[in-house]
Amino acid sequence: MNVIEVKGLKKSYGQVHAVRGVDLSIPAGEIFALLGPNGAGKTTTVEILEGFRSRDAGEISILGFDPQTQGYAARQWRDRIGIVLQSAADAGDLTVIETVKHFSGYYSKPRNIDEVMSAVGLEDKSGALIRNLSGGQRRRLDVALGIIGSPELLFLDEPTTGFDPEARRAFWALIEQLRGTGTTILLTTHYLDEAEALADRVAVINNGLIVEVSTPAELGGRATAQAVVTWRDGSQIKTEATDNPTAVVARLSSHFGGEIPELAVIRPSLEDIYLKMIGGVHE
């Protein structure tokens, strides 16, 4: 059974159709990225799956539960999921360790506190007040609170916004570690390199509809798209689009008698493909 199963999800705010029929199937253990520009319906979709918003139509099963479940069953459900929201700035007067310990008390089978602290790299900050943490450290605390309950499913909303490159790499390593524990992860992000580095599959959402679901390597026909070979010929930069870049390089190599000046073979980046996709479906 899939961890996340969504069929025909719809949600409108007055005249605005934020989500117009989204289908998603995410199996256990997958890291799935949802990409889309602001206003595409990304946040609305995720917040409905997290149980924060109601829906107008559609069927949803998250770990076998409807996110609108109330009462004790909802507590059972929330015991099995973790949510890392965009920027929370609460509890500034508590220390890191107090907060992590307190949240661990909410769950039936919390993870070991020391393990979580070192997984997010906050073991040196355990006695620090939260309000004295840097933005990146706060974000790592958010993740610690999201994973403390050993969730089977983790929602990560824009997890590395505002990180410096080093902190992002460290964060990616943390997610890879979670992959090793079999946690299913639904990630939303603005950063395409992040989706490419982490996700098994990505979905692009635009205007409230899923445009495509694919692996990052194959999205938008990227794997089979033409490559562009560029090189210098005398004073000119030459380019050639081709399905067979190796043959082109071999031909050029024999033409130049070995080294090709300023040779580059360029495949379209995920970003190129993505921008083309979200540009192409505007009404």
């Binding site: 924060f52 929370a88 700035a89 609460d90």
Partner: peptide
Amino acid sequence: ERDVGGLKRLRGTPMP
């Protein structure tokens, strides 16, 4: 507490 997102975070946990 609601403004800074603290309540929403709690809402996402099994704490009733």
